[in-house]
Write a protein that binds this DNA or RNA. Sequence first.
DNA 1: TATATATCGATATTCTTTTATCGATATATA
DNA 2: TATATATCGATAAAAGAATATCGATATATA
Lengths: 213, 213
Amino acid sequence: MDYKSVSVQTISRLPKYLNYLKAQSKGNSQNISATMIAEALGLNDVQVRKDLSLVSDGGRPKIGYLIDELICDIEHFLGYDDTHSAVLVGVGNLGRALLSYSGFDEYGLDIVAAFDINESLIGCKINGKQVFPLNKLMDLCKRMQIKIGIITVPSKEAQNVCDILVHSGVQAIWNFAPVHLNAPSDVLIQSENMACSLALLSKHLSEKLSKPQ
Amino acid sequence: MDYKSVSVQTISRLPKYLNYLKAQSKGNSQNISATMIAEALGLNDVQVRKDLSLVSDGGRPKIGYLIDELICDIEHFLGYDDTHSAVLVGVGNLGRALLSYSGFDEYGLDIVAAFDINESLIGCKINGKQVFPLNKLMDLCKRMQIKIGIITVPSKEAQNVCDILVHSGVQAIWNFAPVHLNAPSDVLIQSENMACSLALLSKHLSEKLSKPQ
DNA sequence: TATATATCGATATTCTTTTATCGATATATA
DNA sequence: TATATATCGATAAAAGAATATCGATATATA
């Protein structure tokens, strides 16, 4: 089907649907309604229907959607069906945790190599992925036509690593350092901002604790 | 100052300002304008001004804001100045990485204990934090009046852990498992949804690669 | 001292996102 | 076969968020 431009909010909800649908696909029913999805995920049913209409053309009155078809449609829309190779820079605690996680292939992501400046890490293999020195980063990215970079270095070094990645032809960066990164507008910077979550948690608590019922 | 109700979007931007301001506070100038903050973070200046007006009453024409005062105001607004104790459940790779990170005190978060079902982990200390068996979770939370729970268990067990935390009086949950969690509406569930980020990365790439200039 | 300028805060406007409404349709049941 | 109902898709309305505009003000400069 033909995709129109889809909002960030919608794209962000799609993995949630996907996740729920995959859990349901093991069940007995082959169909599911937008109403049910909405209820299970705490969303509005019209919103779910609208989101799904952008990625799928299933959906029959009184019946709903075919679960497996919907899973395929969402995965295809998000581009999960063709795998992208990625590199990870910064083999600290978080970097190691990401390297050790084997579930990324579900999202079409394949981390093929890791980089660090720490001499003692170089040559190590983590979950089968080798650690290279940082000065090999650009060469490897260019040679393997890497399009995704994952940044798990400390804040200070993040912009520098970002620059190297951009110059190496990387087109999307998943950034875990709590800094704003500057990059050309055609390169997507997706920051995993844990500080945002912490802010929301903290704010919620300080409000609750200041005015208890 | 008196706080009105502030949108999630605004709260999410505040840590970004905070982060930038902290970097600037080491510099030579004591003042900063909303225009500069906006430019540095790729935002609209009116938006920055509006956000800041909700948490601070500084801001003088031609001068801008006092950096250090603004830092205090934001931290106070977010509740970072009083520390909340938290427990972490699920000592896998990610759980370990979070336990090992020592920067959470900056956000008023103090992880005081970890829990797991894996016998071999129990009694271990990670970054000074001890791992207890899961059946001690409720007791410890109640006794120490823990208000924050961090969930880093596999999806299957997440709802169960969530239920235990809720029954233990926890009021805010930071969830890293990629599932929707059900909880009473007065308990905040903040899901760190890495699948969202991956969806955006993947979608960006598949769009770029399908229509290259 | 008068004028120019950077900046703020407030109000107005535009844009985006969410939610509500309503007719159409596929199935189940009387 | 007729009727009731769950559901869809499309359009309309409402709510919310981002951006633009404008007067006020504090400082710097002529």
